[in-house]
Design a protein around this nucleic acid. Structure first.
Length: 279
DNA sequence: TTCCAGGCTATGT
DNA sequence: ACATAGCATGGA
């Protein structure tokens, strides 16, 4: 076990497979930041965690210990996963670069809305719009919870229009109307392919967004979302052979198997911080 | 001003 | 089944 619970705080001892910067800045979630004292904090669903760095461990202070043990996937040994993935010589140095990345077990609905927003958009603006959505979330004291679909579905279209989400506003609205009538706990029991076709029926969700929701919101690590960055990764580091995004996803998922999504995050994080034409 | 951002839908062939 | 124009908004 790489962690222990002390006074409702989580202590993560293995810094070689847990790094808050790597975890939060590899693009899997959008509601996070850095305090004045340099510590990362993150919101998920209606909860909040702050991660303090101590000499021997990271300490996670939160208002729901069990939730964040699962959220940070602390029962999974990422050194085992990394060792398996390192058999790929292209991926290996990129794992060393983002060694502390973990796949978060993020809130399913929050992932659905967040990644609908992500299409043809930039990460800064996605964060802004998600934050604005949370203005109608439950008041948790010094912050707001992510709104529930039931509450979102009651709001007029004007609310979505005012988010500044552009043409995606109608997707958010119809998704809220749909999800307010759904029980996702039942959906979580389905196979990955069954959830995929379930998600693809939602207007505004295509193959890439569905893959992200499966990976971060349903814990399906075998999915490898292909976006602009991974398309660049493919041509810069893997092959010059022309492929569609769908073909690239099949190529990568065949290469990395049950840990495709973990590999995708190392690649994404590396490329976003090292490619020549980035920002 | 023009181009682009974690793509998708709608509308052609 | 496959190709692509158009899309809202804001920042560079």
């Amino acid at each position: 076990m790489i962690y222990s619970i002390e006074n409702n705080n989580i202590r993560v001892y293995d810094k070689t497979q847990f790094n808050p910067k790597h975890i939060l800045e590899c693009g899997q979630v959008f509601r996070y930041g850095i305090n004045d004292d340099g510590n990362y904090f993150v919101y998920s669903n209606k909860y909040k965690a702050t991660i303090l760095e101590k000499p021997e461990y990271y300490e996670i202070i939160s208002n729901n210990t069990d939730y964040f043990v699962n959220y940070f996937d602390l029962k999974t040994d990422y050194n085992l996963i990394k060792n398996k993935l390192k058999t790929n010589k292209v991926l290996s140095p990129m794992i060393d670069y983002g060694y502390g990345i973990r796949i978060l077990n993020a809130d399913t609905e929050e992932m659905i809305y967040s990644f609908i927003l992500s299409q043809n958009n930039n990460i800064k603006r996605i964060q802004k719009i998600v934050e604005k959505m949370c203005e109608i979330g439950e008041n948790m004291g010094d912050y707001k919870a992510f709104p529930t679909s039931k509450n979102l579905s009651k709001l007029p279209f004007e609310f979505y229009k005012n988010l500044g989400a552009g043409y995606r506003d109608k997707f958010l609205k119809s998704t809220a109307d749909f999800l307010s009538l759904q029980n996702l706990e039942d959906v979580k029991k389905l196979s990955t392919d069954e959830i995929l076709s379930y998600l693809l029926k939602i207007n505004g969700i295509g193959p890439k967004v569905a893959s992200c929701v499966l990976l971060f919101g349903f814990g399906r690590k075998e999915k490898f979302p292909v976006d602009t960055w991974l398309e660049q990764v493919y041509y810069n580091h893997f092959s010059k052979e022309k492929r569609t995004r769908d073909e690239m996803q099949k190529y990568f998922e065949n290469e990395f198997g049950e840990y495709s999504g973990v590999a995708q995050q190392y690649l994404f994080y590396y490329e976003r911080n090292n490619s020549t034409n980035n920002k």
